[in-house]
Amino acid sequence: MRFETSREVPAAEGAVKVKKDDNNNYKVNLKIIRLSPSERLSPPKNTYVVWMDTDLNGTINIGNLGTSKGLFSKKLKSSLETVTPYQPVRFFITAENDKRVEYPGNQIVLRTRYYN
């Protein structure tokens, strides 16, 4: 699944791969390039939080997104890998002041389309 183009972070591009494992869990592998630091947004925020809409369990915070520069590249690279027992149907990223928020704020910077 690819993230849709965003007005908030227009240079950012990314995708999410989801694979069901032998234990009936879902392995999530998210990668994004050129995601500007959250403190450069308007209004500035402290972190990016990745959310997963699930088939039966609502919306879940699956972690915060760190950004780093490659050793030989100036591209900003962000990634998140996790495993969940819940079937994902969509992912989105919000800019937040606290990475432990329980509900997404209204500053959505990237999102995927729904899928089954």
Rank of each mutant, 00 (worst) to 15 (best):
E81H: 07
A95W: 04
P88S: 00
R100A: 10
P37I: 00
E96F: 13
T84H: 03
N25S: 10
S6P: 09
R90T: 02
M1T: 12
D22F: 07
A15V: 06
Y26T: 10
Y103Q: 15
N24Q: 11
N23R: 09
Y115V: 12
G58A: 01
V101I: 15
V109F: 11
E13S: 14
G105W: 01
V50C: 12
S42M: 03
G66I: 01
N46A: 14
V89A: 01
F91G: 05
T94N: 04
L76F: 02
F92D: 03
N29Q: 08
N64S: 14
V109D: 10
G58Y: 02
I62T: 04
Q87D: 11
K69L: 14
D21N: 15
S79Q: 09
G58T: 03
S79C: 00
V109K: 08
V50N: 04
I32C: 12
Y115G: 10
R100G: 10
N46H: 10
V101D: 02
E4N: 09
M52V: 06
S79Y: 01
P85A: 03
I62H: 05
V50Q: 05
N97W: 03
L110C: 07
N23W: 10
N29P: 01
N46L: 05
N25H: 14
L110P: 08
E39M: 13
E102N: 11
Y48C: 07
P43T: 03
T67I: 14
L71E: 15
P104Q: 01
G14A: 05
Y26S: 10
D98A: 13
M52C: 06
V101N: 06
N116S: 02
P43S: 04
V50P: 07
W51L: 08
N116D: 04
K74E: 15
T94W: 01
M1F: 08
R34V: 02
R113Y: 03
N106K: 05
L30V: 01
E8K: 15
D98E: 14
Y86R: 12
L71S: 14
W51F: 13
G14V: 04
N23S: 15
N57Q: 15
S73A: 01
N106G: 02
V9R: 03
K17Y: 01
V9M: 09
S36G: 04
L71Q: 14
I33H: 04
D98T: 11
I60F: 11
R7C: 01
P10N: 12
K31R: 14
S68N: 11
E13L: 11
D55G: 02
Q107I: 09
A12W: 09
F91E: 01
L71T: 15
A95N: 04
S78Y: 04
R34I: 01
Y103D: 12
V83P: 02
D53G: 05
N106S: 05
P88M: 03
I32H: 03
I108E: 13
Y103G: 07
P10K: 13
A12P: 08
V49L: 00
